[in-house]
Amino acid sequence: MAVQEIWGNALYDTLVEAGVGIFSYVPDGGHKVMIQRAIDDPRVRAISLTTEEEGVALAAGAHLGGAKAVLLMQSSGAGNCINMLSLTANGQFPFLCFVTMRGTFGEQNAWQVPMGKAVRPSLESIGVDCLEVEREDEVAETAEAALNMAYRSNRAVAVLLSQKLIGAKAF
């Protein structure tokens, strides 16, 4: 958890400084620091979802109202989002999500592998640009790039946080 304390806090601060005011999430261990920061922070709203695609629609609604919402989820949730991303694509809504990866580098739970390997091709097929982060020193730079692509170019962007960064969970 020590490593996540560093990049998780830095990433959270970067997002809030960029004007992100809503964090929706389906919990994941890799997002523990950011989720707790959002819950404890009176400047933002932390919204616990029942399924990840709610966060896709929620972000579009927030944009209609002039706010920035990001979605925090695990790779298993990416598949749940696919049809809802038609709203993002068809309406050219900005969309920014942070995906903690499972099923790839060093995975010990075979159930995580199919969706983990399908994250990038599925998201790209519905129009989401994927930026992968493998090292702690890439987190801030990638977040800045993703923020610009989403909120200045109205792109849908997923930042994939690799198991090289977050570690492969012992299962």
Binding site: G21, L49, E54, A57, A59, G61, G65, A69, N83, S86
Partner: peptide, 25 residues
């Protein structure tokens, strides 16, 4: 009004995002 022709399931969570952004409305 924002009206949809697809993205089935979006109405409630999209309305929620709008309400969070515009809590006075």
């Amino acid at each position: 009004a924002y009206l949809m022709g697809g993205a089935m399931g979006a109405a409630v969570p999209m309305g929620l995002g709008l309400a969070l952004a515009q809590p006075e409305r």
